[in-house]
Amino acid sequence: MDLEFDDKMPIYLQIMDHIKMDIATEKLKANDKLPSVREMATMLKVNPNTLQRAYQELERLGIVYTQRGMGTFVGERKHMIDDLKQEMAKEVIDSFILRMKRLGFSEEEIIWSISKNITEVNKHV
């Protein structure tokens, strides 16, 4: 796993986001085993306690579950993927709208610029 960190933000949040992303895009599927805390820590060159915290938070949110002595696994809750997608999309859109507003765009202008640009972005993807 390759992950570029932004050291300005808490590392455990970034790790959580990364795992959520992998689940949402189905790189990780229900009941897949996540690497152990130590494996991940070595891979990412991050303090094991930070990973521990990321896993714990994910577990608290019901996204992963642990089995004693076995490891941590991706949860199999219904609609989880959709929920995660919705949640992450909301984050992206919220921050986009916020930044557009800071630039002085009105709501109509924001919608207009999205519809104008979406075709162009489509060409690149």
Partner: peptide, 30 residues
């Protein structure tokens, strides 16, 4: 990224000690 806690030492005094993640989110800085 491997620190849980950091302490800044200057002229023989600890001027700031705290949890690394909290410092990041409170100050929005690495």
């Amino acid at each position: 990224r491997i620190f849980d806690e950091v302490a800044f030492i200057s002229d023989g005094e600890i001027v700031l000690q705290g949890n690394a993640e909290e410092l990041r989110s409170n100050k929005n800085k690495s």
